[in-house]
Write a protein that binds this DNA or RNA. Structure first.
Length: 359
DNA sequence: CCGTGTGTTGAA
DNA sequence: TCAACACACGGG
Protein backbone atom coordinates (compact mmCIF):
# COMPACT_ATOMS: atom_id res chain seq x y z
CA UNK A 1 0.00 0.00 0.00
CA UNK A 2 2.85 2.34 0.20
CA UNK A 3 4.76 3.57 -2.73
CA UNK A 4 7.33 5.22 -0.60
CA UNK A 5 9.80 2.92 -2.12
CA UNK A 6 9.14 4.34 -5.51
CA UNK A 7 11.89 6.62 -6.48
CA UNK A 8 10.74 8.53 -9.44
CA UNK A 9 14.01 10.19 -10.02
CA UNK A 10 15.81 7.14 -11.09
CA UNK A 11 17.04 7.50 -14.57
CA UNK A 12 14.85 5.35 -16.61
CA UNK A 13 13.91 7.37 -19.58
CA UNK A 14 15.62 5.31 -22.13
CA UNK A 15 14.06 7.32 -24.87
CA UNK A 16 17.47 7.65 -26.35
CA UNK A 17 17.33 4.33 -27.99
CA UNK A 18 14.69 4.14 -30.58
CA UNK A 19 15.72 0.91 -32.13
CA UNK A 20 13.98 -1.66 -30.14
CA UNK A 21 15.49 -4.78 -28.89
CA UNK A 22 13.19 -7.55 -29.42
CA UNK A 23 10.94 -8.77 -26.77
CA UNK A 24 10.34 -12.42 -26.24
CA UNK A 25 7.37 -13.83 -27.97
CA UNK A 26 4.39 -14.65 -25.83
CA UNK A 27 4.51 -17.97 -24.12
CA UNK A 28 2.48 -20.75 -25.49
CA UNK A 29 -0.98 -20.91 -24.05
CA UNK A 30 -1.82 -23.94 -22.03
CA UNK A 31 -4.28 -26.38 -23.38
CA UNK A 32 -7.48 -25.27 -21.72
CA UNK A 33 -8.26 -28.77 -20.68
CA UNK A 34 -5.18 -28.90 -18.57
CA UNK A 35 -5.91 -25.85 -16.62
CA UNK A 36 -6.81 -26.00 -13.01
CA UNK A 37 -9.27 -23.67 -11.47
CA UNK A 38 -9.18 -22.85 -7.85
CA UNK A 39 -12.11 -22.46 -5.61
CA UNK A 40 -12.20 -20.99 -2.19
CA UNK A 41 -9.50 -18.91 -0.65
CA UNK A 42 -6.75 -18.75 1.82
CA UNK A 43 -5.00 -21.71 3.21
CA UNK A 44 -8.07 -23.82 3.02
CA UNK A 45 -8.38 -23.52 -0.69
CA UNK A 46 -8.74 -26.63 -2.71
CA UNK A 47 -7.77 -27.30 -6.24
CA UNK A 48 -10.60 -28.33 -8.44
CA UNK A 49 -9.61 -30.37 -11.39
CA UNK A 50 -12.15 -29.62 -14.03
CA UNK A 51 -10.94 -32.46 -16.14
CA UNK A 52 -12.84 -34.92 -14.08
CA UNK A 53 -14.50 -32.70 -11.55
CA UNK A 54 -12.55 -34.18 -8.71
CA UNK A 55 -11.09 -32.26 -5.89
CA UNK A 56 -7.47 -33.09 -5.58
CA UNK A 57 -6.97 -32.19 -2.00
CA UNK A 58 -3.44 -33.41 -2.27
CA UNK A 59 -2.21 -30.70 -4.53
CA UNK A 60 -2.66 -27.35 -2.86
CA UNK A 61 -0.02 -25.91 -5.05
CA UNK A 62 -0.94 -22.82 -6.88
CA UNK A 63 -0.51 -22.84 -10.61
CA UNK A 64 2.47 -20.90 -11.80
CA UNK A 65 1.89 -18.22 -14.31
CA UNK A 66 3.42 -18.47 -17.72
CA UNK A 67 3.89 -14.73 -17.67
CA UNK A 68 6.63 -12.65 -16.24
CA UNK A 69 5.69 -10.63 -13.21
CA UNK A 70 2.50 -12.57 -12.65
CA UNK A 71 1.81 -14.61 -9.56
CA UNK A 72 -1.19 -16.71 -8.67
CA UNK A 73 -3.53 -15.72 -5.89
CA UNK A 74 -5.19 -18.20 -3.61
CA UNK A 75 -8.62 -17.37 -4.95
CA UNK A 76 -7.77 -18.05 -8.55
CA UNK A 77 -7.03 -14.52 -9.50
CA UNK A 78 -3.64 -13.21 -10.55
CA UNK A 79 -1.33 -10.70 -9.02
CA UNK A 80 1.16 -8.58 -10.88
CA UNK A 81 4.39 -7.35 -9.41
CA UNK A 82 7.60 -5.81 -10.49
CA UNK A 83 10.85 -5.43 -8.63
CA UNK A 84 12.90 -2.37 -8.27
CA UNK A 85 15.66 -1.55 -5.90
CA UNK A 86 15.42 -4.91 -4.18
CA UNK A 87 11.83 -4.26 -3.43
CA UNK A 88 8.65 -5.59 -4.79
CA UNK A 89 6.13 -3.15 -6.14
CA UNK A 90 2.68 -4.60 -6.15
CA UNK A 91 0.70 -3.84 -9.29
CA UNK A 92 -2.63 -5.21 -8.23
CA UNK A 93 -4.74 -8.27 -8.69
CA UNK A 94 -6.59 -9.28 -11.80
CA UNK A 95 -9.11 -11.83 -12.94
CA UNK A 96 -7.24 -12.76 -16.04
CA UNK A 97 -3.69 -13.87 -16.22
CA UNK A 98 -3.20 -11.90 -19.40
CA UNK A 99 -4.55 -8.81 -17.76
CA UNK A 100 -1.97 -9.11 -15.05
CA UNK A 101 0.71 -9.76 -17.63
CA UNK A 102 -0.28 -6.68 -19.58
CA UNK A 103 -0.16 -4.65 -16.41
CA UNK A 104 3.30 -5.88 -15.70
CA UNK A 105 4.29 -4.84 -19.20
CA UNK A 106 3.07 -1.34 -18.63
CA UNK A 107 4.91 -1.06 -15.37
CA UNK A 108 8.02 -2.50 -16.96
CA UNK A 109 7.97 0.15 -19.64
CA UNK A 110 7.45 2.87 -17.13
CA UNK A 111 10.14 1.60 -14.80
CA UNK A 112 12.66 0.36 -17.31
CA UNK A 113 11.98 2.16 -20.51
CA UNK A 114 10.22 1.24 -23.67
CA UNK A 115 12.65 -1.49 -24.50
CA UNK A 116 11.97 -3.36 -21.33
CA UNK A 117 11.43 -7.05 -21.56
CA UNK A 118 7.72 -7.65 -21.58
CA UNK A 119 5.21 -10.39 -21.95
CA UNK A 120 3.60 -9.16 -25.11
CA UNK A 121 5.11 -7.67 -28.20
CA UNK A 122 3.33 -4.38 -28.62
CA UNK A 123 6.23 -1.93 -28.48
CA UNK A 124 4.01 0.74 -27.02
CA UNK A 125 3.01 3.60 -29.25
CA UNK A 126 4.68 6.95 -29.03
CA UNK A 127 1.52 8.28 -27.56
CA UNK A 128 1.60 5.71 -24.83
CA UNK A 129 5.25 6.28 -24.14
CA UNK A 130 4.54 9.95 -23.77
CA UNK A 131 1.68 9.17 -21.48
CA UNK A 132 3.91 7.00 -19.34
CA UNK A 133 6.54 9.68 -19.25
CA UNK A 134 4.02 12.20 -18.11
CA UNK A 135 3.10 10.19 -15.07
CA UNK A 136 5.13 9.21 -12.09
CA UNK A 137 5.77 5.62 -11.33
CA UNK A 138 3.48 5.85 -8.37
CA UNK A 139 0.74 7.23 -10.55
CA UNK A 140 1.13 4.49 -13.09
CA UNK A 141 1.16 1.88 -10.39
CA UNK A 142 -1.94 3.38 -8.92
CA UNK A 143 -3.72 3.28 -12.25
CA UNK A 144 -2.76 -0.34 -12.70
CA UNK A 145 -3.95 -1.25 -9.28
CA UNK A 146 -7.23 0.52 -9.82
CA UNK A 147 -7.58 -0.85 -13.31
CA UNK A 148 -7.96 2.61 -14.74
CA UNK A 149 -4.86 2.75 -16.86
CA UNK A 150 -6.50 2.08 -20.19
CA UNK A 151 -9.14 4.68 -19.63
CA UNK A 152 -6.75 7.33 -18.42
CA UNK A 153 -4.62 6.70 -21.43
CA UNK A 154 -7.59 7.14 -23.68
CA UNK A 155 -8.66 10.30 -21.96
CA UNK A 156 -5.25 11.82 -22.26
CA UNK A 157 -5.13 11.05 -25.93
CA UNK A 158 -8.52 12.53 -26.50
CA UNK A 159 -7.48 15.66 -24.73
CA UNK A 160 -4.45 15.79 -26.92
CA UNK A 161 -6.50 15.42 -30.06
CA UNK A 162 -8.87 18.14 -28.98
CA UNK A 163 -6.03 20.49 -29.64
CA UNK A 164 -5.78 23.62 -27.57
CA UNK A 165 -3.44 22.56 -24.88
CA UNK A 166 -5.50 24.55 -22.44
CA UNK A 167 -7.86 21.68 -22.26
CA UNK A 168 -10.09 23.46 -19.84
CA UNK A 169 -13.37 21.76 -19.62
CA UNK A 170 -13.64 19.67 -22.66
CA UNK A 171 -17.33 19.08 -22.89
CA UNK A 172 -17.44 15.40 -22.55
CA UNK A 173 -20.57 13.49 -23.21
CA UNK A 174 -21.21 15.52 -26.31
CA UNK A 175 -21.24 12.32 -28.18
CA UNK A 176 -22.87 10.40 -25.43
CA UNK A 177 -22.67 6.79 -26.18
CA UNK A 178 -19.74 6.52 -28.37
CA UNK A 179 -19.39 3.32 -30.11
CA UNK A 180 -16.13 4.97 -30.47
CA UNK A 181 -13.31 3.71 -32.48
CA UNK A 182 -11.07 6.60 -33.25
CA UNK A 183 -10.48 7.25 -29.67
CA UNK A 184 -6.80 6.86 -29.60
CA UNK A 185 -6.88 3.33 -28.45
CA UNK A 186 -9.56 1.62 -30.43
CA UNK A 187 -12.35 -0.36 -28.96
CA UNK A 188 -14.26 -3.14 -30.43
CA UNK A 189 -17.95 -3.22 -29.76
CA UNK A 190 -18.74 -6.72 -28.68
CA UNK A 191 -22.48 -6.47 -28.46
CA UNK A 192 -25.38 -4.47 -27.14
CA UNK A 193 -28.46 -5.45 -25.30
CA UNK A 194 -31.68 -3.62 -24.80
CA UNK A 195 -32.44 -4.33 -21.21
CA UNK A 196 -35.67 -5.98 -20.24
CA UNK A 197 -37.80 -5.11 -17.25
CA UNK A 198 -36.35 -8.00 -15.33
CA UNK A 199 -32.82 -6.88 -16.18
CA UNK A 200 -33.47 -3.70 -14.27
CA UNK A 201 -35.87 -5.14 -11.76
CA UNK A 202 -35.57 -6.86 -8.46
CA UNK A 203 -33.81 -9.88 -9.82
CA UNK A 204 -30.51 -8.12 -9.65
CA UNK A 205 -29.18 -9.70 -12.75
CA UNK A 206 -28.63 -9.04 -16.39
CA UNK A 207 -29.17 -11.82 -18.83
CA UNK A 208 -26.51 -11.93 -21.48
CA UNK A 209 -27.90 -13.32 -24.68
CA UNK A 210 -26.44 -16.74 -25.12
CA UNK A 211 -24.94 -16.12 -28.51
CA UNK A 212 -23.02 -13.13 -27.27
CA UNK A 213 -22.07 -14.72 -24.02
CA UNK A 214 -20.59 -17.77 -25.62
CA UNK A 215 -18.81 -15.75 -28.24
CA UNK A 216 -17.32 -13.05 -26.07
CA UNK A 217 -17.47 -14.22 -22.50
CA UNK A 218 -16.77 -17.91 -22.57
CA UNK A 219 -16.86 -19.37 -19.12
CA UNK A 220 -14.18 -21.81 -18.10
CA UNK A 221 -15.86 -25.00 -19.13
CA UNK A 222 -19.19 -25.70 -17.58
CA UNK A 223 -17.97 -29.11 -16.71
CA UNK A 224 -19.43 -31.14 -13.92
CA UNK A 225 -22.77 -30.70 -12.31
CA UNK A 226 -21.02 -28.62 -9.72
CA UNK A 227 -22.40 -25.15 -10.12
CA UNK A 228 -19.47 -23.01 -11.07
CA UNK A 229 -19.56 -19.91 -9.01
CA UNK A 230 -18.78 -18.05 -12.15
CA UNK A 231 -16.08 -15.50 -12.53
CA UNK A 232 -15.63 -11.87 -11.71
CA UNK A 233 -15.25 -9.51 -14.59
CA UNK A 234 -14.25 -5.90 -14.54
CA UNK A 235 -15.76 -3.40 -16.89
CA UNK A 236 -14.95 0.23 -17.07
CA UNK A 237 -17.59 2.79 -17.82
CA UNK A 238 -17.26 6.07 -19.65
CA UNK A 239 -16.44 7.91 -16.48
CA UNK A 240 -13.52 5.68 -15.76
CA UNK A 241 -15.28 3.89 -12.98
CA UNK A 242 -14.57 0.22 -12.83
CA UNK A 243 -17.47 -2.13 -12.25
CA UNK A 244 -16.98 -5.62 -11.08
CA UNK A 245 -19.69 -8.09 -11.81
CA UNK A 246 -20.06 -11.73 -11.14
CA UNK A 247 -20.62 -13.55 -14.37
CA UNK A 248 -21.99 -17.03 -14.34
CA UNK A 249 -24.25 -19.54 -15.97
CA UNK A 250 -27.51 -20.51 -14.44
CA UNK A 251 -28.26 -24.09 -15.29
CA UNK A 252 -31.86 -23.83 -14.28
CA UNK A 253 -32.66 -21.10 -16.72
CA UNK A 254 -29.99 -22.02 -19.19
CA UNK A 255 -28.77 -18.49 -19.26
CA UNK A 256 -25.66 -16.46 -18.80
CA UNK A 257 -26.00 -13.71 -16.28
CA UNK A 258 -24.27 -10.84 -14.62
CA UNK A 259 -25.28 -10.95 -11.01
CA UNK A 260 -23.36 -9.47 -8.12
CA UNK A 261 -22.75 -5.82 -8.76
CA UNK A 262 -25.28 -5.43 -11.50
CA UNK A 263 -28.02 -3.87 -9.44
CA UNK A 264 -25.65 -1.21 -8.33
CA UNK A 265 -24.95 -0.34 -11.92
CA UNK A 266 -28.64 -0.21 -12.68
CA UNK A 267 -29.19 2.11 -9.79
CA UNK A 268 -26.34 4.44 -10.51
CA UNK A 269 -27.05 4.76 -14.20
CA UNK A 270 -30.75 4.82 -13.66
CA UNK A 271 -31.25 2.13 -16.20
CA UNK A 272 -34.80 1.57 -17.30
CA UNK A 273 -36.15 -1.17 -19.43
CA UNK A 274 -35.63 -0.30 -23.05
CA UNK A 275 -32.30 1.31 -22.36
CA UNK A 276 -29.28 -0.19 -23.99
CA UNK A 277 -26.11 -1.49 -22.46
CA UNK A 278 -23.11 -1.89 -24.64
CA UNK A 279 -20.12 -4.11 -24.08
CA UNK A 280 -16.83 -3.20 -25.62
CA UNK A 281 -13.30 -4.37 -25.49
CA UNK A 282 -10.08 -2.53 -25.97
CA UNK A 283 -8.18 -3.63 -29.00
CA UNK A 284 -5.01 -3.04 -27.11
CA UNK A 285 -3.06 -5.72 -25.34
CA UNK A 286 -4.83 -5.01 -22.10
CA UNK A 287 -8.07 -6.35 -23.50
CA UNK A 288 -9.85 -4.07 -21.08
CA UNK A 289 -13.57 -4.51 -21.09
CA UNK A 290 -15.92 -1.57 -21.10
CA UNK A 291 -19.56 -1.12 -20.40
CA UNK A 292 -21.58 1.74 -21.67
CA UNK A 293 -25.24 2.59 -21.61
CA UNK A 294 -27.70 4.79 -23.39
CA UNK A 295 -31.25 5.64 -22.71
CA UNK A 296 -33.97 4.14 -24.79
CA UNK A 297 -33.95 5.88 -28.10
CA UNK A 298 -37.13 7.39 -29.41
CA UNK A 299 -39.23 8.70 -26.58
CA UNK A 300 -37.08 11.58 -25.51
CA UNK A 301 -37.85 12.11 -21.97
CA UNK A 302 -37.54 14.66 -19.33
CA UNK A 303 -37.17 11.84 -16.95
CA UNK A 304 -35.97 13.36 -13.79
CA UNK A 305 -35.65 9.75 -12.93
CA UNK A 306 -33.80 10.41 -9.79
CA UNK A 307 -36.51 9.87 -7.31
CA UNK A 308 -38.49 7.18 -8.93
CA UNK A 309 -37.80 3.56 -8.69
CA UNK A 310 -40.66 1.59 -10.02
CA UNK A 311 -41.41 -1.90 -9.13
CA UNK A 312 -44.45 -3.45 -10.58
CA UNK A 313 -45.61 0.04 -11.19
CA UNK A 314 -45.09 1.07 -7.63
CA UNK A 315 -42.61 3.64 -6.65
CA UNK A 316 -40.62 2.01 -3.93
CA UNK A 317 -38.01 4.67 -3.88
CA UNK A 318 -39.46 6.27 -0.83
CA UNK A 319 -39.09 3.10 1.03
CA UNK A 320 -35.40 3.03 0.45
CA UNK A 321 -34.27 6.47 -0.46
CA UNK A 322 -34.12 7.97 2.92
CA UNK A 323 -31.44 5.61 3.87
CA UNK A 324 -29.85 5.57 0.50
CA UNK A 325 -29.33 9.26 0.33
CA UNK A 326 -27.83 9.65 3.68
CA UNK A 327 -25.68 6.69 3.11
CA UNK A 328 -24.61 7.89 -0.24
CA UNK A 329 -23.35 11.11 1.15
CA UNK A 330 -21.94 9.78 4.31
CA UNK A 331 -20.97 6.32 3.77
CA UNK A 332 -18.38 5.25 1.48
CA UNK A 333 -18.38 1.84 2.90
CA UNK A 334 -20.51 -0.55 4.75
CA UNK A 335 -23.63 1.23 3.76
CA UNK A 336 -24.20 -0.10 0.34
CA UNK A 337 -24.90 -3.60 1.33
CA UNK A 338 -27.52 -2.23 3.58
CA UNK A 339 -29.43 -0.65 0.74
CA UNK A 340 -29.80 -3.92 -0.95
CA UNK A 341 -31.12 -5.47 2.15
CA UNK A 342 -33.52 -2.67 2.70
CA UNK A 343 -34.68 -2.95 -0.86
CA UNK A 344 -35.28 -6.60 -0.53
CA UNK A 345 -36.96 -6.14 2.74
CA UNK A 346 -39.30 -3.71 1.12
CA UNK A 347 -40.04 -6.34 -1.40
CA UNK A 348 -40.77 -8.83 1.27
CA UNK A 349 -38.26 -11.35 0.10
CA UNK A 350 -34.66 -12.23 0.46
CA UNK A 351 -32.13 -12.16 -2.26
CA UNK A 352 -32.05 -15.89 -2.22
CA UNK A 353 -35.75 -16.00 -2.71
CA UNK A 354 -35.54 -13.52 -5.48
CA UNK A 355 -33.16 -15.74 -7.32
CA UNK A 356 -35.09 -18.84 -6.62
CA UNK A 357 -38.12 -17.24 -8.10
CA UNK A 358 -36.36 -17.11 -11.38
CA UNK A 359 -35.33 -20.66 -11.39
C1' DC B 1 -15.30 -13.83 6.49
C1' DC B 2 -12.64 -13.20 2.53
C1' DG B 3 -9.14 -11.55 -0.51
C1' DT B 4 -5.18 -8.77 -0.92
C1' DG B 5 -0.68 -8.05 -0.87
C1' DT B 6 3.24 -8.30 2.39
C1' DG B 7 6.93 -11.06 4.71
C1' DT B 8 10.14 -14.12 3.53
C1' DT B 9 13.04 -17.44 1.32
C1' DG B 10 15.72 -19.69 -2.13
C1' DA B 11 16.77 -19.98 -6.96
C1' DA B 12 18.31 -17.86 -11.15
C1' DT C 1 15.69 -9.82 -9.81
C1' DC C 2 12.31 -13.07 -9.54
C1' DA C 3 8.63 -16.51 -8.19
C1' DA C 4 6.80 -19.52 -4.54
C1' DC C 5 4.71 -19.94 -0.44
C1' DA C 6 2.31 -18.74 3.90
C1' DC C 7 -0.69 -15.99 6.25
C1' DA C 8 -1.52 -11.24 8.76
C1' DC C 9 -4.23 -7.73 8.13
C1' DG C 10 -7.88 -4.77 6.68
C1' DG C 11 -12.24 -3.98 4.22
C1' DG C 12 -16.85 -5.31 3.58
Amino acid sequence: MDYSCLDDNTSNTSETLSMSKKTPSPPLPLPPAMRLYRMGSGGSSVVLDLENGVETESSRKLPSSRFKGVVPQPNGRWGAQIYEKHQRVWLGTFNEEEEAAASYDIAARRFRGRDAVTNFKSPASDAESAFLEAHSKAEVVDMLRKHTYADELRQSERKFLDGDGNGRKRCEFSKTTVTNENDGVSREVLFEKTVTPSDVGKLNRLVIPKQHAEKHFPLPVTVTPSPTKGVLINLEDRTGKVWRFRYSYWNSSQSYVLTKGWSRFVKEKNLRSGDVVCFERSSGPDRQLYIDWKVRSGIEKITPVQNVVRLFGVNIFNATTTNANTNDVVGESGSKKRFREVDLFALGCSKKQAIINVL
